[in-house]
Design a protein around this nucleic acid. Structure first.
Lengths: 315, 315
DNA sequence: ATTGACTGTTTCCTGAGGGAAACAATAAGA
DNA sequence: TCTTATTGTTTCCCTCAGGAAACAGTCAAT
């Protein structure tokens, strides 16, 4: 396989009218240029330059070849300019995968991102299951997980940590108390999943003990807001994120159930493939999420949820 | 200065749909391609290929870049094809420098060459002085010299050796004899030069003695035929090439004067610049001269010159 | 006429890139 | 389900291209 760099070296000699000037222009030693141009002539089997000390003349075939080289090098510059342009301004399509539960929160985050980068096109893929980024052409996958167990060529950017706690309305606890680990599985429960049927809560306590509670939830949904409302209304016990239950506790519409037990600590993170550079649009989205997600989670804690049975259900 | 070969390696990966196939196609180790493509992505700051083990997908920007690379590589092939075509069939202009004295002999040699290579265009520069091949754009310089004292980047191809001998007509010798070295300078002489005025014959004898004869020639010309005719007609003594005097001796129209003395041995040769390849046309000319010059010189010896005063001068 | 500046080429030593081999991961076949 | 084949990546040792320096030649300035 021939060395294409010889073309650039030769063209620089012709353009700069000498080896010394070419070496200066390219920032390489003139011995290299001398050798490489000689090798190019040997390989092509013609003399491109006639030269003695202090005299240089381009042969006819050398001039023809030089003009082709200039065209080639212009093509290289054009190719690199296109790439540089594509990478300097975030633009083009992004496929973002996130659990449906993130929708209300992300409904505020994404519009500000899109207003900031008007040439980006965002497609949201609602799923919480593990995805194959390459196979499914996902640019970014937003998840809350204890750990990331995916393709090891994937890069993970962690945004914040979170735990989930058991909570129910005061009236529910008064009606079913006192509640123990053993009685949990017999009480009405809420689960964040997309299907009906059995669910399992994996809980840890402050001393590190682990306890799995198998239960048959009355309500399964993938939207935390729906589960929050159901808990406040006294439908059952939910295992909900700290950002949600904290505000419920403060407002008095929820109370902690077995507060020394919680889910293991989990990370809210984004996963993306990025071994060597990434498109500007993807980078911009990741940076935007890193900037606003922690703040948005904090704002969730500060929202005062409505009390049970006083909600206005009129449409 | 970036490595343009990375473009070829990347394009091969895309074209062959994988690193392993590209390595096979190019005959380079796949570790090299892996590293070089990664370096290209780092340098451009974008990901051209999304890949994990056994999965490869070209990104959008990678596809755009690949198309540009294919155009560039096609340009490289085209440039090399043009050079290859130019070098396979002798064609184009040649500037040949030779002394005017060669004209009659070359008048036969050059037509056969031009008939053989119809795409060659020959320009003959008539001069016997030393020339600067590069400065004066001379492709080949034909000369007869004791030695070549030119630019050391010049290559010399020797064709044949020759000496010049003193000769005059029998009637001249009868009228002016006996002729000695001492009397030479006072006798009518002929000189091969372009100007009137003094000339110097540098002679050596068979034992190596050297003798310079300064003389004031009656006739100066750069055409050996003209000097040969003048000698045969008894105009004076000439120092003529052995190929000419030998045939005159055989025909009886010339006799040797001081036959143990002659010019030093000289080479008939062609000089050309050729460090790295040469154009096919130039090479073909040199080869042609090497083939036919010695034979033409031999033929000159065999031509029977006309006797003095019997020449038909009618037009 | 001599000297210094500058050119393109060549020499020689060193370190960066090449490339064989190993590694880690995935997919296909049994 | 397990094993083998095949992929792309990384490691590590060695060689050759890189590059500093010297060389040889030419031209301009003094």
């Amino acid at each position: 396989m021939q060395d294409l760099n010889d073309l650039a070296l030769f063209a620089a000699v012709v353009k700069n009218k000498g080896f010394t000037a070419a070496a200066t222009a390219l920032g390489v030693p003139k011995s290299k240029i001398s050798k490489r141009v000689a090798q190019l002539e040997d390989r092509l089997g013609v003399r491109l330059l006639e030269r003695s000390t202090r005299k240089l003349r381009v042969t006819d075939i050398g001039q023809t070849f030089y003009e082709r080289c200039e065209t080639i090098l212009a093509g290289v510059d054009e190719a690199e300019t296109i790439v540089a342009a594509a990478k300097s301004e975030p633009a083009g399509p992004i496929r973002l995968s996130m659990p449906p539960g993130f929708a209300p929160m992300m409904a505020h985050i994404l519009p500000t991102f899109l207003k900031r980068y008007p040439q980006v096109r965002l497609a949201v893929v609602m799923t919480n299951r593990p995805v194959d980024l390459i196979e499914e052409r996902i640019d970014v996958a937003l998840r809350v997980r204890e750990s990331y167990e995916g393709d090891q060529s994937v890069v993970v950017r962690k945004f914040t940590s979170t735990r989930q706690f058991l909570a129910a309305s005061p009236s529910f606890v008064a009606a079913h108390g006192p509640i123990t680990l053993e009685s949990l599985s017999k009480l009405p429960t809420l689960a964040i999943q997309e299907h009906t049927g059995r669910a399992v809560w994996s809980l840890v306590n402050t001393t590190g003990e682990v306890c799995d509670i198998a239960h048959n939830p009355i309500l399964s949904a993938v939207e935390f807001g729906m589960l929050e409302r159901a808990a406040i209304e006294g439908v059952g016990i939910g295992l909900l994120p700290d950002s949600i239950v904290e505000r419920g506790f403060r407002a008095g519409v929820l109370v902690a159930v077995l507060p020394e037990w919680s889910s293991p600590e989990q990370s809210m993170h984004a996963a993306f493939t990025s071994r060597h550079g990434m498109l500007p649009a993807v980078r911009a989205l990741i940076d935007h999420l890193a900037e606003v997600l922690p703040r948005t989670v904090q704002l969730c804690k500060e929202v005062i949820p409505q009390s049970p049975a006083t909600a206005d259900w009129t449409i």
